Computed example of a mutant assay.
Amino acid sequence: MHSDIAPAVRPHSLDGSAPVWDPQQYLRHAGHRTRPFLDLLNRIPELPTGPARIADLGCGPGNVTALLTERWPDARITGFDLSPQMLQRATDEHAGPTPGGGRLDFRHADLADWMPEETYDLIVSNAALQWVPSHPGSFAAWINGLRPGGTFAFQIPGNFTAPSHRLLAELCDTPRWRDRLAGHGARYIHILEPAEYLARFTELGCAVDVWETTYSQLLQGADPVLDWVKGTALRPVLTALGDDREAVDRFLAEYREALRAAYPPGPRGTVFPFRRIFAVAHKEA
């Protein structure tokens, strides 16, 4: 990958900077993070043309994008992301020709303003659009970028009122942290409810399937919920605190104690319920 690749889904910090992502930390819970995408993939209908042209919006480290090659082995697939760290990992581990004669590549893009520059059979997004407050406003353009009979499908976390996120928002807004972090934990009010996503796609003339699932995940290890959010929701906070190691350690210690009380460990692990929202919009042929 070229060293001048720009960052790609832009989860802006409040100061305008993009959080620094850690692919290794994100992949520590790859099994649980991948399962919703597999459930989404099972509901995507057959695509209108072959070899298919597919875009993955917010591809992250590329491990989920690579799963698309199992369903469509001859497809030409492009993963888009903003993070140079994620793109580097994806390119190093997954880019190139696929065994079925297709090709997988990765490009930088900011989903806040990404528009299709060609026609796709499938546009898919896995746990990325929560970082893009304007994403419902892009649906019309993305559907317009599909071939007749094409599909736009995504899954998005819907757990932003859960203790893990509520406690983070409350801690960021305490007197100790307010000047540096106020608002960093309460970023997701733009996430729509399933019925609202359904309405958006029916208004665009799509046949649409929308549902939600809460996964009761059993996490292992010491402070596993903290370890989980270090790969996602905590990234803007850690980026804002930067190289202030003392502040990072102090913040994590306070957050750790709150999470331990909210998610007590059991004899076989720590239960971490996680709600996800899914949508599969099929463009009329």
Rank of each mutant, 00 (worst) to 15 (best):
A75F: 05
S216N: 15
N42Y: 03
P84K: 06
F160D: 09
R53D: 12
F80N: 03
D56A: 03
P175R: 09
L41F: 08
A195K: 13
D39V: 03
G185H: 02
T202V: 14
D173A: 14
P265I: 10
L198K: 07
G16K: 09
P45F: 01
G185T: 10
K283L: 11
D179W: 00
D223E: 15
R76I: 13
L218K: 07
L111V: 04
I77F: 00
A247I: 07
P148F: 01
T151R: 01
A109L: 08
V132R: 00
G150C: 06
R180H: 09
T34F: 07
W228P: 04
T119K: 06
P148M: 08
L104E: 04
E46D: 15
H184V: 05
V124A: 07
D243Q: 13
G145S: 06
R268H: 15
H108I: 02
R250M: 15
E196N: 08
E118V: 08
G150K: 02
A75S: 10
P163A: 14
A247T: 09
A162K: 01
A261G: 06
P45K: 01
A109H: 02
F154D: 05
F274Y: 13
A169S: 14
V208G: 03
Q85W: 01
Y255T: 08
E93R: 07
V208K: 00
L192F: 01
Q25I: 13
Q24M: 09
R268P: 02
R256D: 15
A240S: 12
I156F: 04
V229H: 05
R187V: 11
W114E: 04
E70Y: 03
F154T: 04
G266P: 08
T34C: 10
I77S: 00
A30T: 12
A233M: 13
R235E: 15
G62T: 05
R71Q: 14
A127P: 05
P61H: 02
E254T: 05
P23T: 08
A153C: 11
S3F: 04
L181M: 10
H12G: 11
W142T: 08
K230R: 15
L129V: 12
R43E: 15
E193W: 05
F139M: 08
V210F: 02
W228H: 06
